[in-house]
């Protein structure tokens, strides 16, 4: 595992989503990598994200060919747009499959899957 992959997953284990940020471009970068893809300098800094976003699009997986997902169906596979301007592939949890909507506000959660923490999103409610 590279140092930047390790940093990403370490923060996830602690329950927060940190992303790389290029101070020259003033842009967040996802997925983690050695170079800013825009300028393309090295030495990106790490910043904690708000964990807030909206569902850009989604699909419902009703039959999974992957054995480890067979018991999880139906589940929501989605792209979430973070307020930091990053689009991230994820699952939407704590949401019935007929309740998910495009543009729905969501907030970060982490789950354990195959022995490690994974960033996912759940519907945003004001008491959050």
């Amino acid at each position: 595992m590279t140092d930047y992959q390790q940093t990403y997953w370490e923060h996830i284990e602690e329950g927060s989503l940190w992303l790389q940020y290029c101070s020259h471009c003033q842009r967040y970068v996802f997925y983690p990598r050695r170079h800013c893809p825009y300028c393309p300098r090295e030495n990106l800094e790490w910043r904690q994200t708000s964990g807030q976003g909206r569902v850009h699009s989604y699909t419902l997986v009703r039959v999974s060919a992957l054995p480890e997902f067979k018991d999880l169906v139906p589940y929501i596979y989605a792209l979430v747009d973070l307020v930091e301007g990053i689009r991230i592939p994820t699952n939407i949890i704590e949401c019935a499959v007929d309740q998910v909507r495009v543009d729905m506000p969501v907030t970060l959660a982490t789950i354990k899957r195959e022995g490690r923490a994974l960033p996912v999103f759940k519907p945003f409610q004001k008491q959050n």
Partner: peptide, 17 residues
């Protein structure tokens, strides 16, 4: 890690959007 279904899920999200 999120269980995408190959190209199907990508095009499904395009269609949904």
């Amino acid at each position: 890690p999120y269980g995408p279904m190959g190209f199907n899920s990508g095009y499904a999200m395009i269609a949904r959007r």
